[in-house]
């Protein structure tokens, strides 16, 4: 369990899951601006949670639920962008934002399916 900091703030951390690191690197080669944007939005979300805000208070344009505790972070502020989605699972029990995979609008159904399988795997795996 994550330590509770003063004033109920949690020490949220970020974890890259599976082959996400390789995927990010590959995606970044083609869509660098979009990756910079989603990473910046992820950073913004992380800081929002680190400040003691609850997940339910995340009311940002780039943030959306894909149900079953899966969320997507979209890109913002990029003209003519390839619609990019970073899929994350913010686990309030452990205060870990699991970064699962990245894709675009075309690969969305496959990415969501894959991401939800990863969430099931994470939940049944022993804590590290």
């Amino acid at each position: 369990m994550a330590k509770n900091m003063t004033c109920g703030m949690k020490a949220w951390t970020v974890k890259l899951e599976g082959a996400c690191q390789k995927e990010l690197t590959k995606y970044n080669q083609r869509y660098g601006r979009e990756v910079a944007s989603v990473m910046s939005n992820l950073q913004y979300l992380h800081k929002h949670l680190l400040s003691g805000n609850r997940l339910g208070s995340c009311n940002f344009g780039f943030w959306g639920s894909e149900r079953d505790r899966l969320y997507r972070i979209g890109q913002t502020g990029v003209r003519g962008a390839k619609e990019t989605r970073l899929y994350v699972f913010p686990d309030e029990a452990t205060s870990i934002i699991h970064v699962l995979c990245i894709g675009d609008k075309n690969t969305q159904p496959r990415d969501i399916k894959r991401a939800k399988e990863m969430i099931r795997w994470i939940e049944t795996s022993p804590d590290d």
């Binding site: 890259l16 899951e17 690191q21 660098g32 910079a36």
Partner: peptide, 30 residues
């Protein structure tokens, strides 16, 4: 599976995409 955990997104981006990735992310934030 990769189990590396990061305290900040910047650390994660640095590890994955290098300093260029961090610079691009920070420029976007600005």
């Amino acid at each position: 599976m990769n189990t590396k955990r990061y305290d900040t997104v910047e650390a994660m981006v640095l590890d994955t995409l290098g300093t260029d990735g961090v610079d691009a992310m920070n420029q976007h934030s600005e």
